[in-house]
Computed example of a mutant assay.
Amino acid sequence: MAKIMRQFLKDGDLCPSIRGIFSNKLIPCSVRQLREGEILWHDNEPHPYCYLIERGMIKLHVINRDGKEKVLFYYTNGSLLGFQSLSKEKMTMTTATAILPTRLYVTEFALFYNFILENPEYLSALTSYIFHHMAIEAEEIVNISIYSAAERLAALFVLLAEEYPENSRGEVVIPFKNEDLAAMIGACRNSVSNALSAFNKDELIVRQRGSVTITDLKRLKEYAL
């Protein structure tokens, strides 16, 4: 199977020079700690800030007309948020929520933007990052139309396994509920439940309330390839 499910923007996807703007405090910035479930910003509110995730995970989501949550994207270590302020509309259409304890850098977007305009090498890095982000979103649209929910879920587990350490038995615990996993791969909850049942039967995972334990990551990788 082709490369799929690069849904997370990771450290290697963001030019180190952009990270250095924050970590070296080339512009005024502060550090913020978010608890699991804490909201970073709400929809329909002014959004004048830019963020870089040092560690943790943020989901970008909206509520549809039926009152159901739709997850648009997940961001993890090294991801940049807030470049959407480049658009003319400054009011946000999304909500950003920490789904893990998260530590991030915060600065005013105007300071960040002025800095990169004055330093072409950083502007080039940001442009590359935005195009990379667009390519990932386009790839996800293709993946949903080509690959089954089980294939996408297996690939997602392989990707998530990079974020969580193995325990003493060589297992990886993925702390997400079925509805969270369904949102991540753009599938319905029943499709995810069926895929998990098949993985459990093949002894690739163990299903638990509110989480999934990967017991055979090697075979799961073969399933996702």
Rank of each mutant, 00 (worst) to 15 (best):
A2P: 15
A2Y: 12
K3H: 11
I4K: 09
M5E: 09
K10N: 09
D11Q: 15
G12A: 04
C15G: 06
P16R: 03
S17F: 08
R19P: 14
G20S: 11
S23T: 15
S23M: 08
N24S: 10
R32V: 14
R32T: 12
R32D: 04
E36A: 09
E38K: 03
E38C: 00
H42G: 08
Y49K: 14
C50V: 15
Y51N: 12
L52K: 07
L52H: 04
I53L: 08
I53M: 02
R55P: 10
I58N: 07
H61K: 05
K68Q: 14
E69L: 10
E69S: 10
E69K: 06
L72C: 07
F73H: 11
Y74S: 03
Y74G: 04
N77L: 02
G78W: 08
S79Y: 02
L81S: 00
F83C: 03
K88N: 04
E89D: 03
E89S: 08
E89N: 03
M91E: 09
T92M: 02
M93C: 08
M93T: 11
M93W: 05
T94W: 00
T94V: 07
T95P: 01
T95Y: 01
T97E: 01
L100Y: 01
T102H: 05
T102N: 03
T102A: 01
R103H: 02
Y105C: 07
Y105I: 11
E108Q: 01
L111D: 04
F112C: 00
N114V: 03
N114Q: 05
F115W: 01
I116V: 12
L117D: 01
P120E: 10
E121D: 08
E121W: 09
Y122C: 04
L123K: 10
L123W: 01
A125P: 10
S128D: 06
Y129G: 13
Y129T: 12
F131V: 10
H132V: 14
M134G: 06
A135L: 10
A138Y: 09
A138E: 13
A138V: 15
A138N: 15
E139N: 15
E139Q: 14
E139P: 11
I141N: 04
V142G: 05
V142Y: 12
I144V: 12
Y147R: 05
A149C: 06
A150W: 04
L153Q: 06
A154N: 09
A154L: 09
V158M: 08
L160F: 13
E163A: 15
E163F: 11
E166C: 15
N167M: 07
R169H: 13
R169I: 11
G170W: 12
E171H: 15
V172A: 00
V173W: 05
V173C: 10
I174A: 00
F176L: 06
N178G: 13
N178S: 11
N178W: 08
A182F: 02
I185P: 01
G186N: 08
A187F: 09
C188G: 09
R189D: 12
S191T: 06
V192P: 05
V192K: 04
V192W: 02
S193W: 06
A195R: 05
S197E: 09
F199I: 04
F199D: 03
N200H: 11
K201G: 09
D202N: 13
E203Y: 06
E203A: 13
V206I: 13
V206C: 03
V206Y: 08
G210R: 02
V212E: 00
V212M: 01
T213E: 02
T215D: 00
T215W: 05
D216A: 07
L217T: 05
L220C: 07
K221T: 07
E222S: 14
L225R: 12
